[in-house]
Simulated scan of single mutants.
Amino acid sequence: MTESMIKKQITALVNMAKSDDNMDDRELALIYRIGDAHKISRDEIQEIIAHPGKIGSVDELDPDEKFEFLYSIIQLMKIDDEIFNEEVEYCNMIADKLGYSYGAVMEMYPQVHKNLVIKSEKKALKKKLTSFLKDS
């Protein structure tokens, strides 16, 4: 993913974290971990947290990047052990924006773990989710 796309992903994560009016420390830790992994400075991340704005277009993402984007959003939703309707609605909106049909979030939800990634499960889930892409 390009730096621009990572910043859009972080923006989406921040908006998700703020959707329940309570940005949890675990949510912040995941946001920083993703930013750090992609060499986004702490100052840039803090600026996005302070003023997230809208994510804009994600049309240029390839299917793998779309999956990763949605996976991280669902992971963030689960990380504080509380799921709010606003968060589910936000995930569904992001999934739609990424080109996934209705049901993709609920298909992914039980297989996305909040604190770990099991590569074999993630790979199988990615394969299964291709059937939810509207343009496939």
Rank of each mutant, 00 (worst) to 15 (best):
L70P: 06
I94L: 08
D43R: 03
L133Y: 03
L76G: 07
A17D: 05
I10N: 04
I49Y: 03
K127D: 15
S4L: 13
A17S: 15
N22E: 11
K119F: 03
E68R: 03
V112I: 15
S101A: 10
R26V: 11
D43E: 11
N92Q: 10
N15Y: 07
K123D: 13
D24G: 04
L98N: 07
K78M: 12
V117C: 09
I74W: 01
I31G: 06
I31R: 01
Y100H: 07
I34W: 00
R26F: 10
Y71Q: 06
L28E: 12
H113Y: 12
D96F: 07
K119R: 03
G99T: 09
E86P: 00
S101Y: 00
D24Y: 06
E44M: 06
D59N: 06
M106V: 10
A12W: 01
Q46E: 14
I94P: 09
V112T: 11
D24E: 13
M1D: 07
A124S: 11
A12V: 12
Y102K: 13
T2Y: 06
L76H: 00
I48Y: 04
K18P: 00
V117P: 05
M93Q: 15
M23I: 15
K126M: 14
H51E: 12
V58M: 11
A37Q: 07
D96Y: 02
E47R: 04
F132Y: 15
E82V: 14
Q111G: 04
A50Q: 10
K127A: 15
Q9T: 13
M16V: 07
V117L: 07
D59Q: 05
I118M: 10
L116A: 13
Y90V: 05
F84P: 00
I94F: 01
Y109R: 08
M1L: 11
D43F: 01
Y100G: 11
E87H: 03
K78P: 06
K122M: 10
D43M: 02
H38N: 15
P52R: 09
A124R: 04
L28G: 13
V117H: 03
E65I: 01
I94Q: 05
P63V: 10
T130V: 13
S72Y: 00
L76W: 00
Y71L: 06
Q46L: 11
I49M: 12
Y90F: 14
T2S: 15
V88Q: 03
P110Q: 06
I45L: 03
E65T: 04
E89V: 11
L28Q: 12
K128F: 02
E65P: 01
K7E: 14
D59K: 02
K66M: 07
K66C: 08
H38D: 05
S120P: 01
I49R: 01
T130M: 13
M77T: 14
M77S: 08
L61N: 07
L133H: 01
N85M: 08
K114G: 14
V112F: 02
K122S: 09
T11E: 12
D64M: 03
Y100K: 10
A95S: 14
S131D: 11
L133N: 05
N22W: 01
I6Y: 05
T130S: 11
L13R: 02
L116S: 15
